[in-house]
Nucleic acid binder design. Structure first.
Lengths: 377, 377
DNA sequence: GGCCAAACTGATAGCGTTACCATTGCGTCG
DNA sequence: CGACGCAATGGTAACGCTATCAGTTTGGCC
């Protein structure tokens, strides 16, 4: 019996094998998914050994491991997450608390964290927090839902009250993309300062010397880091930091409109504007167009984040790519590790992962049309 | 023992109870989550009865049910999903196959389907399909991952090859937001034709008689339905359907730019443009602004879908709201029902759910500035 | 009031996996 | 040369829940 199944699915994944598999499934449905016992029998070892192989324990002899691996492949075996968590006794449930669904960010974030959650076989409970709900009640809700830890994507990661409330309730959290200095809270982020520095350097290298900057929402610590990077690159190049070229934005498209309008209304407007995120960069492009400016001919515009908006609009934005789904994945991993450690009593300090960013060059930047004034570069 | 815990968490969810709960948790962590047996003991019934109450079976006497409910509330009990699927023996795994991450759509969709998935205690496996991957290999991958059924949000729901391949492999699917006529495939959608009809009527009621229309991508059947609604409303009002006012779009911002440019370049441009989705409506607004037109003063622009983009840009778009997360939820439910039925041998025909839409009025529409020509309305 | 069916409730036996020992085999040291 | 320790494996008993079938009530009816 078992051998029949093995013979069938041991075939490579050609079209025929697909048909074969599907036949198997539809006839005696579901029930016959191979179990660890099937694998054990097929490999001639005990289920325990199979379990050890699956979980990558080191104590299994290489030869045995090979036999088991072969059996797993032959039977197309996949462990049952349910049985695993039940037996393992942990049943970890982690919450993903979000607000402000900057949808493009959220969807990528969700995909990443879901993937890692199923890989780590933990439950992911996605929870939205509106400003109307009190923090206490959210925390109460998490507790009631037996959430073991939470992931805080921006802007929640910078909401002190939330972090504090979670801390008081004893719920570990991981902050994602915070610009906050390393603290007791675990965190996964990119080097916002360095990224903004690189982008600004890139603009300077193109020949720009009057570079506008639209700041991000001050309620997110990353905003300050990005601004620091801009200032640092300017300083390094010997360029002045001019207040008139700097506008306050709030990460929304709307705020970007105001900020860009303000900057472009100057008598001597900049030849480039670096917005702290893509939404505001898109708004800047819109204002530029409305003012009859060509992008990038008359004005270079750069964003930050590389959300889908960056490639939606025209021209496509030169921007900084954050590895959003990798960060989400990492956040789940960090949290799971922390929870495991906590359960076994090791109180190791909070991890701080910094992932790589990348400058993505698209069509919204160019050298300035006019001769750059001397002193630039 | 058990009673102590009960006493603690029976308190209402005031701040104090939060603290109490968290204390309980952090001291003897995780292990002591109440089980069905605890509840049974507390209620003085058998675990089986508790199980029945939880699963909403009708055979439990009201008095018994009340006792159990009280015990559940007192202990703050939540069933273990793992144990449930393990014992239930079904361990359903459903796939969410997406391509073209129209991110705002996707994130809302994900949130909805995740929520329902955990409620129905099924595993949701999110899978992306790029155009480069062959359909056969995707299907093979699903089979290998033991996916029992898949959800197809647009545009995949209209990809015949995909639907067919899944059918051949014996994987049931639910199409979401397809405009396709009811078929063997289960589906959850809104009445696209009716929605577009209502929006067009709304524009006519405002006094518009020259109404432009930007069609959606022909690879999605909903596009045709929306166009039909537009035509029907025009016909009903005795207005002519003028080809020059109709442009082909592809649901992308870029295509909306071209379409809007085309329509607004007419000698006698329309006073309103109804785009088949929000992205193209946003593009239309951009073009209007670039041409020095005020929205809605000089041009009314309406969208469809009510994605976050609709409220991101300025002015905010009047649009048709699709209940995306409700549709996702419904899709999961339909699929689960179908799988259960299939497992127990009932081959009921495919369900077709039509959910309600709503016309959301925001700031992008107004009565036409010029006197509407006679014949309108 | 007693009997029978129907409506409830309970006991038992797993579901697939891992934790926690017990066991085996083999090289090594006293 | 025999016991001892270590490495590799196996046996057993949960984990928390539900399916199944076997009781035990209940209420209706004669």
């Amino acid at each position: 019996m078992t051998n029949d199944v093995a013979a069938i699915s041991a075939a490579t994944s050609s079209i025929e094998s697909i048909a074969a598999l599907s036949d198997t499934r539809s006839s005696r449905r579901q029930r016959n998914a191979p179990t660890i016992n099937d694998v054990a029998a097929h490999a001639g070892v005990s289920p325990m050994t199979v379990s050890r192989v699956i979980n990558g324990e080191q104590v299994v002899r290489a030869a045995t491991r090979a036999k088991v691996d072969a059996a797993i492949a032959a039977l197309n075996y996949a462990p049952s997450a349910a049985a695993r968590t039940l037996a393992g006794g942990d049943e970890t449930r982690i919450g993903l608390l979000y607000s402000n669904p900057s949808s493009s960010y959220l969807s990528e974030f969700l995909v990443g964290s879901l993937d890692q959650a199923s890989r780590s076989s933990v439950d992911l409970v996605v929870e939205k927090w509106d400003e109307e709900t009190s923090i206490a009640s959210v925390v109460a809700h998490l507790l009631r839902g037996r959430i073991d830890g939470v992931i805080l994507p921006p802007p929640l990661c910078d909401l002190d009250e939330m972090v504090e409330a979670l801390g008081k309730a004893g719920i570990p959290a991981v902050a994602v993309a915070t610009g906050r200095a390393p603290s007791a809270l675990a965190a996964v982020s990119i080097d916002d300062r360095q990224a903004a520095y690189e982008m600004t350097r890139h603009l300077i290298a193109l020949g720009h010397s009057r570079i506008g900057f639209i700041k991000g929402n001050p309620n997110q610590t990353a905003s300050a880091r990005r601004f620091e990077g801009y200032v640092a690159a300017l300083a390094e190049a010997g360029l002045p930091v001019q207040d008139e070229l700097i506008a306050q934005g709030y990460f929304t498209y709307r705020s970007g409109l105001d900020a860009a309008e303000h900057i472009l209304a100057l008598l001597d407007p900049p030849t480039a504007i670096f917005a702290s995120n893509d939404d505001m960069a898109a708004a800047t492009v819109a204002i530029a167009h409305r003012s009859g400016l060509d992008v990038p001919g008359d004005l270079t515009v750069c964003g930050f984040d590389d959300t889908s908006l960056a490639t939606t609009i025209w021209p496509e934005l030169t921007t900084i790519r954050q590895p959003i789904s990798a960060m989400a994945r990492a956040a789940v991993e960090v949290l799971v590790r922390q929870l495991k450690g906590r359960r076994s009593g090791d109180l190791e300090s909070a991890e701080h992962l910094v992932l790589d960013h990348a400058l993505i060059r698209r069509q919204s930047d160019a050298a300035p049309r006019m001769r750059p004034r001397l002193g630039g570069r």
